[in-house]
């Protein structure tokens, strides 16, 4: 019993510290706050269920990227709350920075909107890229070769450009 408590304690402590990773995954894969919370909940469960097997041969955060993305892409079943319905306001609620000039802010809004139109795999690539992961880490997380990751990333860039300038 004591062991479980200790495990729980160390897990919650680490998750609390690194929770932004989960929030960021949710930000890319959902369009509104309800869905965001729902996915956050599911990722938390999956992390907790996998935690006893986490041996620390990778960093806790690296491990979180895998579990978080895997949950969002593969395991998560979109619940009753429909995540597909895109409300403009919902998509944009996440961008509220005001420190940019109008054009850059406008461009960012469009960019975030474009990213939301990508498919699950493309979003994962973008996410890891935004998180400043190199191709070796992307290849490790996704289970594809580095070359493949590179080619896919270039296609995502092209696709984004097409969405932005139809």
């Amino acid at each position: 019993m004591k062991l479980t408590k200790e495990l729980e304690h160390s897990f919650v402590e680490q998750l609390e510290k690194h929770q932004n990773i989960v929030h960021k995954v949710c930000r890319l894969y959902t369009n509104n706050q309800d869905a965001h919370n729902d996915l956050f909940q599911e990722i938390t469960i999956q992390l907790w269920k996998a935690y006893p097997k986490f041996r620390g041969d990778s960093k806790f955060s690296t491990w979180m990227y895998r579990v978080g993305l895997n949950t969002a892409i593969t395991l998560y079943r979109k619940g009753k709350r429909s995540i597909n319905t895109q409300h403009m306001d919902d998509v944009l609620y996440k961008v509220k920075s005001v420190e940019y000039d109008d054009t850059e802010e406008q461009q960012l809004k469009l960019l975030y909107k474009a990213v939301h139109q990508l498919n699950d795999i493309e979003k994962a690539l973008v996410f890891l890229y935004l998180e400043d992961k190199n191709y070796r880490e992307i290849s490790y997380t996704m289970g594809i070769s580095e070359v493949n990751a590179r080619v896919k990333m270039n296609r995502v860039k092209t696709k984004l450009r097409t969405i932005l300038n139809p």
Binding site: Y112, V115, V126, L130, D132, L160
Partner: peptide, 15 residues
């Protein structure tokens, strides 16, 4: 690069 712009914003943690 569009993604570079996005990355800059993403990393700033403005949200």
């Amino acid at each position: 690069d569009e993604l570079e712009l996005l990355k800059k914003d993403w990393q700033k943690d403005t949200v």
